[in-house]
Design a protein around this nucleic acid. Structure first.
Lengths: 338, 338
DNA sequence: TTGTAGGCGTTATCAG
DNA sequence: CTGATAACGCCTACAA
């Protein structure tokens, strides 16, 4: 099957390419008669404009890039889903790339997207991303950019986040309200802002309730995995048998903690109360069901895309655009583990 | 930051665009001296070719499209991950779209990808896809196409699958080996090939072991969800209290079955043995841990991409390409639920 | 109301 | 070894 071009329509109709082009776009200066003829033929021949040519002409590809640390994480796959849908509704397609939590890869992906000349970029940073020269690159080139969830505070671009500190505070406060006196925190890596903030929220809650902070009770994940959840819970129980509460950086880790307790017949929540973060699907199907913090992934995806679109449109119209930061609400979900 | 073009390099160096273009591509008929000068300047100016122009010229976008029913399902997000990585290694980017299990949406997505002129399409069909006019569309236009996992047997394109019938047989045989006498099957929708095949495998295993097949013991999911897993298990236990084994179309449904049994204090595996399909991550963190069938998602993604690439290359070189079907091995994973 | 001409940035052909 | 020229397919001032 051959690809139809404006030229072919023009020649078979015996008119000029220009007129065909205009007719298809309903320009007012084309007669109804020719419009009708052109549209009919285009329809019959199954004409679709060659997007390569359109891209070159308009300098737009109607494509955006999306970089996440890890496609398979429930939180991110939910966001991806929301973004793809929002984009499609607005006539955009989405190229997805993953950094695998590696700064080096992340830089490469950014470069790929820049070279691809996408109309905008959505990114959630890897845990490794302490250096943001690649982010500056995007900004310098005037490519619309929105960061979400895992952001760099100082970058001059739009951001969509939750209040991780407040959420961490709420989770810890909940454990305290339930009677916990000695609460451990399995935190995320040292670098990412959200792992810092959740940690700070944890600390603040202890402080506010006059519970002494003990840095020995804070365990730091490197990979933020199920296995680390199990491992640190083992360590923590061996080193501090009287711990009665655990706040984990994310559900995957919390589920590891629950699994370890189940294995050792340590009763959750009676002996130890556990709360996670993110409300992954699996947290409601394990026993006991995991208490957690709901992160609005769907909404985050939509808001991030909307912000990006706003910037794309502003830029296209030559207006200046001031980056915005939008903070979304989180919510405690109390189930059986606390 | 302005975008650098060949023209600018040419004028600042006082040579022709042609020479610059050739120099950058290491054509043998350019002197080392000019090559060096050109490359240095290009490097300094941060030149990257305008992909829109390259696309137009070469009629290739180095981009492929990927359509899955549901991004958030563990099996698919694993495949997506594998495909993105394989594609990137080979210089391709991936546009991802989801059909949400709707044929109508699937057709629209296919159209979007065709209009985008991607170099190839990877697709896993929605449960609704009984009609394949959109697939024929892809084939008619000579766009390289590979179907994976959820395929249409009759379509004339490459395919990557597992032997669902054998896997269904193995799962059922396992339950029989463990002593089950009355085994129910919670199957998938009537239309998709893999749900048909798993069902046939179930039937065959019963037959081979002289267990009478009873159509009343087969429950059919519409949405293939956790909730349906719970619901059908409830029904099935009420209607057939002596059922001692359940083979579920997928882990999500099996996890629902386990959850219902847990709720009713029905002991799994003592009272009822349950086996799922796909080996989702969650199946190893629930209690009891779920027995299941490992589907090689990572490998499937890689093989699917490789097949697509092979077809792209063949086509580009004008050779003819005969579609292939590759069947991947599955593996029983026996845990605590059976 | 219709058409001509030029250009988007690159690559390929062919002549010098 | 280098460069002029055309072409990819579309869009848009500007003429007619």
């Amino acid at each position: 099957m051959k690809n139809i071009t404006l030229k072919e329509i023009a020649t078979t109709l015996g008119i000029s390419i220009t007129t065909v082009s205009k007719a298809l776009k309903d320009y007012s200066d084309v007669s109804e008669k020719t419009k009708k003829a052109v549209k009919e033929l285009a329809e019959n021949l199954n004409y679709t404009p060659n997007s390569f040519a359109v891209n070159l002409r308009t300098k737009e590809s109607k494509t955006i890039g999306l970089i996440v640390p890890e496609v398979t994480h429930h939180f991110f796959s939910n966001i991806i889903k929301a973004i793809i849908n929002a984009a499609e509704k607005n006539g955009y397609l989405v190229i997805i790339l993953q950094s695998n939590e590696s700064l080096e890869l992340e830089k490469k992906q950014v470069e790929l997207l820049i070279n691809k000349r996408v109309d905008g970029i959505l990114i959630s940073l890897s845990n490794d991303s302490n250096n943001d020269s690649h982010i500056q690159d995007i900004i310098k080139r005037n490519i619309p950019l929105v960061m979400f969830d895992k952001i760099a505070k100082l970058s001059n671009c739009s951001k969509v986040v939750i209040d991780d500190q407040k959420a961490g505070f709420d989770a810890t406060q909940h454990l305290i309200d339930k009677g916990c006196k000695k609460i451990a925190h399995i935190r995320g890596p040292l670098n990412p802002q959200n792992s810092i903030d959740r940690y700070l929220g944890y600390k603040k809650a202890l402080e506010k309730n006059n519970i002494p902070f003990n840095s020995k009770l804070v365990y730091t994940c490197e990979k933020v995995t199920f296995d680390e959840g199990m491992l640190f819970t083992k360590q923590l129980i061996e080193e501090h048998p009287d711990v009665d509460g655990i706040f984990a950086i994310t559900d995957l880790v919390a589920v590891g903690a629950v699994a370890y307790c189940n294995e050792l017949k340590i009763n959750v929540p009676n002996d130890i109360k556990i709360i996670g973060f993110s409300n992954w699907f699996m947290s409601q199907v394990i026993t006991p069901k995991l208490s957690t913090v709901e992160q609005p992934s769907h909404e985050m995806g939509i808001v991030a895309f909307d912000l990006l679109l706003e910037e794309i449109i502003h830029r296209r119209e030559g207006k200046l655009f001031t980056p915005k930061t939008i903070e979304l609400d989180t919510q405690l979900i109390i189930r059986e583990s606390s």
